[in-house]
Amino acid sequence: MNANPPDPAELGRRLAARDRTAAPAALNVIEQTGERHAADVAALLAEVAPEKLGGDAPGMIVGVTGPPGAGKSTLLSELVAKWRERGKSVAVLAIDPSSKRSGGSLLGDRARIRVEPGDTDVLIRSTATATRLGGLAPATREAALAMAAAFDVVIVETVGVGQSETDIAELADSVVVIVQPASGDVLQFIKSGVMEIPDLLVVTKSDLGAPATRAARELMGTVKTLGSHTPVLLVSSLPPSTGVDELIDTVESHHASLDLPASRAEARRAAALDAFVHEHGERGLRAVGGRRAAQRLLAEPSPTPGLPRLVELLQDAAGY
C-alpha cells in the first residue's frame, strides 16, 4: 500500500528477531495469493523457517474453535487480557467464513476484543476463509507459523463444529473446542465419532448455572467412556470472568507435554500440501502421484524443513 512496499525477506528477518512491529506488513505479504506474489511469500517464509531459526518457532500455537454464538469472541478477549497480564505477547488470527455469493466477508471479532492501541505486543488480524472448507483461510497456516517466530502465543480462532477441527488440529499445538451449554452439537459429534476429541473442552457461560454444569458433566462422562483424558473446563468470560486462568494453565501444561518438533513438522507438511493444491489444483496433485504419494514425499526429509522447501519438493516432483 505504501509507495515502496517493504522487502519481504527483511520483514521475515525482523519477525525472526522478534520485532513484532513487522507483523502486520508481514501478514500483508503472506496473505497475497497468485503466482505473481509467490516469490515474495516464499522469501519471507524462508526467513522464519526452522533452518534459519535453528529450531521451531518458539511461540505456542493455540486453536480455538466452536459453533457460532458459543461465546468465542468474549472468551478470546479474556484470554488475550490474561495472557498479557502474564507478560506474554499475543497474536490472534480470527477467521470468519466468506459469503459464497459475493466472496466478501464481515469480520466482526475485532470489535469485541478490547486492546490498548499502543500495545504492540497484541496483534489482532481478521481474515476470511475465502472459498476454502475446513475453517481456515488460505494463508492461515503460513501466517500462524510465521507469527510463532515473534509472538509468545498465537491464537487461531475458527468457526464451526464437526469437520473444521481437523484442519486446525493439524496446524495448532493445542486445540480448544468451545461448547455452549444447552446445545448438544459437540456432545453428539464426539459420541458419533464425527469429531475427534480435542486437547481441551471448554463449556462457556458458566454464569448460567445449572445448564452449564450439566453440559460439562455430560461431556466429562462421554470423554471418559471413550477412554480419553481430555480435560473439560467451565468458564464464564463475561467480566469479571471465572475459570480463564485455569484454562490458560491447562493449555500451557498441555503445550509443555507436547513433542513440539513432531507437531510443527505435521503442521508444515499440511501447510505445504495445502498451498500446493491451492496453486496447482487436483491436476498438480495427480502429477505428484496423488495425495498419498505427496504426503510420503513430504515425510521423507528428516528433520522436516521449512515451508518454502517443502513446497519446492512437491513442485519438483510434479515437474513445475
Partner: peptide, 25 residues
C-alpha cells in the same frame, strides 16, 4: 459487493482506529 469488511465497532479513539487499520492491513 465482495469486500472483506473489518467492523471495528463503536466508541473508538483515533488511536484505536489507526491501530486497527495497521494491524488489519
Amino acid at each position: 459487493c465482495g469486500m472483506d469488511v473489518v467492523y471495528d465497532g463503536i466508541r473508538l479513539t483515533p488511536a484505536q482506529i489507526a491501530n486497527s487499520a495497521v494491524q488489519e492491513g
